[in-house]
């Protein structure tokens, strides 16, 4: 299943490392990454594929949110369809 992960927060060392570490732990494949710094704010969007035979969307979601809370980041993990339906006719 494809999901979109959005991370926004004050730029700091190791954001990418932490996010991708958790994803690897849960067997989530990163298919695309786009990242920028907007006025000191780190903004990253990842397109990922969750292997549902190995881990559930819910577990990945919870693990990422725990990390985000500790690091003071805002993170969203959402199934891809929401963006397709809202922005494509």
């Amino acid at each position: 299943m494809k999901a979109i992960i959005t991370v926004v927060g004050k730029d700091q060392v190791g954001i990418m490392y932490r996010v991708s570490g958790i994803l690897a732990e849960y067997h989530v494949n990163i298919e695309d990454v786009t990242q920028t710094i907007l006025q000191d704010y780190f903004t990253m969007i990842m397109v990922v594929k969750i292997d549902e035979s190995k881990s559930s969307f819910h577990d990945v979601d919870v693990a990422l949110h725990e990390m985000a809370e500790q690091q003071g980041l805002s993170i969203h993990v959402q199934k891809e369809e929401i963006f397709d339906t809202m922005h494509k006719i």
Binding site: T6, V8, I45, H76, Q78
Partner: peptide
């Protein structure tokens, strides 16, 4: 970059 804009627009709608 279209997806980038769409994703941020949706996140903005939800958060703000």
């Amino acid at each position: 970059m279209t997806i980038y804009k769409d994703v941020l627009e949706t996140i903005h709608m939800i958060e703000k």
